[in-house]
Amino acid sequence: MNFRPLHDRVVIRRIESKERTPGGILIPDTAKEKPQEGEVVAVGPGARGEAGKIHPLDVTAGDRILFGKWSGTEVRIDGIEYLIMKESDLLGVLETSCH
């Protein structure tokens, strides 16, 4: 992908939900909701503060994140669907447990 987001924007690839429920029922494509979980693909340099200093973003490429149902703008780059949104639209980062 040859795309670099500006300012405090991030590029996200949705992580598709499972095709079956925990009980084993197959979910057809027409009944599925778009997932609200994704992977950060690229991040901008950060937001510029009042003093003119750039504040880097808290997320980095590769982070798994959650976002709101109606967040972001859908775009297609090189035939792949992505979401572009501001970092403030992200709900949080999914941490991997080390148990």
Rank of each mutant, 00 (worst) to 15 (best):
G72V: 05
I54D: 09
V11L: 15
K69Y: 07
L66E: 10
Y82S: 01
I84H: 08
V11E: 02
T73W: 02
E39M: 15
P22S: 01
V75G: 01
M85K: 02
E87K: 06
G52A: 03
H99I: 07
R13H: 03
V10Y: 02
K86H: 14
V59I: 15
G52C: 07
T60F: 07
D89Y: 05
K18D: 12
I12P: 03
M1Y: 02
G23M: 14
G24E: 03
G46L: 11
S88A: 06
I25Y: 08
I25R: 11
L83Q: 09
P35R: 07
I84V: 15
G38L: 06
I25Q: 12
R48G: 06
G44V: 02
P5T: 00
G44N: 05
L83C: 09
V11D: 02
P56H: 01
H7R: 10
S17R: 14
E39N: 04
L83S: 07
R9G: 03
S88R: 14
T96I: 09
S88M: 10
P22I: 02
P5C: 00
E16Y: 11
E39C: 06
K53R: 12
L6M: 10
T73H: 04
D8I: 06
Q36R: 15
R4W: 04
K18M: 08
I54V: 14
G24V: 00
G68W: 10
G44D: 02
V10F: 03
S88T: 14
R64H: 12
E95L: 09
I27P: 06
N2I: 11
I80H: 12
V10M: 05
E37I: 14
E37S: 11
H7Y: 15
A61N: 13
N2Q: 04
I27R: 03
P5D: 00
K53L: 12
V59E: 09
L6D: 11
V59D: 14
F67S: 03
G24A: 03
G46K: 10
L26R: 14
V59C: 14
G92D: 01
R9H: 10
R4N: 07
D89G: 00
T60R: 14
N2K: 13
H55M: 13
Q36F: 09
T30Q: 13
G52E: 08
V93S: 05
R20A: 08
P5M: 00
D89K: 02
I84C: 07
Y82V: 02
K32G: 05
L6N: 06
E39Q: 12
I65Y: 00
R76G: 00
D29Q: 14
L66S: 05
E95Y: 08
P35N: 11
W70A: 08
V41D: 04
V10L: 14
R20S: 12
T21P: 05
E81A: 04
D8A: 08
K69P: 04
R9C: 04
E39T: 08
K86Y: 14
T21K: 05
T30M: 09
I25H: 05
T30N: 13
R9Y: 12
P45V: 03
I84T: 13
T73Y: 01
V11M: 12
L26Y: 15
A31G: 03
G68C: 08
